[in-house]
């Protein structure tokens, strides 16, 4: 095994062990979308009427509609939580350990990103399994075809978290960023309501939703769950992921960025 792969394996295992230890984090990661699915969606089922629109070929219940958005929610929260732990690591010293490795810094940060994405995807599959137990079934092939969509969306949202973690000086500042990033990103997207519905109430809000990368991540997942490919959503998600990753690498560049401010 090459040194780069040895490091990748170790970083993924460390993240996985950390996640397994933090049982509360795992439970809350599942409870959050389940409450939306089983409580919020049940309440709104009667209030919101949804017309047939791709990838759905028939009328669907609201629970079915928000399922992909809630998968996205897991990826979003986990991406941010992972970057929160990066800020914590930086204050504790383990981030220094990572950054002073002789392996290329971009690779070490990418390893960290891959590790957090792996954890996110495991959570999404747990969530989909529980949703199936409550009667929300998807095409069997959808469970497999959604994997690449989850990888792309997870990497994009993880890269956003990584970029944010490089810009945040202290843990205390992170709560504010969570509020200013997670909630707007989630609510200004197609996770909870289709964009055409948003357009009915506000054109501006619709346009904001349409450029929100989270909308595209959700649509990529939604189409993949129904064994379809949404090329525009894929392109947007990959593009946004690339930009966020560049921003993160810039932030962690030893010649600039935040590390020196914290020395």
């Amino acid at each position: 095994m090459t040194p780069a792969l040895i490091a990748l394996r170790a970083i993924v295992i460390r993240e996985a062990l950390r996640f397994v230890r933090q049982r509360g984090r795992f439970i809350s990661a599942l409870v959050r979308p389940l409450i939306w699915l089983l409580v919020f969606a049940a309440g709104f089922r009667a209030a919101l009427g949804l017309s047939i629109s791709p990838p759905y070929q028939t009328y669907i219940t609201y629970e079915v509609y928000i399922l992909p958005g809630l998968c996205g929610m897991i990826l979003l929260f986990n991406g941010m939580q992972s970057s929160l732990s990066l800020v914590y690591d930086r204050e504790m010293g383990s981030m220094r350990l990572l950054l002073t490795s002789p392996l290329p810094r971009w690779w070490l940060l990418t390893c960290r990103l891959i590790a957090s994405t792996v954890i996110s995807i495991l959570q999404v599959y747990c969530f989909l399994a529980i949703a199936a137990l409550f009667g929300i079934h998807l095409p069997l092939a959808g469970y497999i075809l959604v994997l690449p969509a989850l990888v792309v969306a997870g990497l994009m949202l993880g890269a956003l978290g990584l970029a944010l973690s490089s810009l945040i000086k202290q843990l205390e500042n992170f709560a504010g960023v969570m509020n200013f990033v997670i909630f707007p990103m989630f609510f200004l997207s197609s996770a909870l309501y289709p964009l055409w519905k948003m357009a009915e109430s506000s054109r501006v809000l619709h346009d904001i939703c349409a450029v929100n990368p989270f909308t595209h991540a959700v649509e990529l997942i939604r189409f993949a769950l129904y064994t379809q490919f949404n090329p525009m959503a894929a392109l947007w998600t990959i593009l946004a992921g690339g930009v966020f990753l560049m921003l993160a690498l810039w932030g962690y560049d030893p010649a600039r960025g935040m590390i020196r401010r914290k020395a």
């Binding site: 490091a7 170790a10 970083i11 460390r14 062990l17 990572l98 490795s101 002789p102």
Partner: peptide, 18 residues
């Protein structure tokens, strides 16, 4: 939360040693 040995293995891996 990791043992001393696991901590050291992690660090070795960051140097490409496995």
């Amino acid at each position: 939360d990791l043992t001393v040995r696991r901590n050291l293995h992690y660090f070795a891996a960051l140097h490409g040693i496995g």
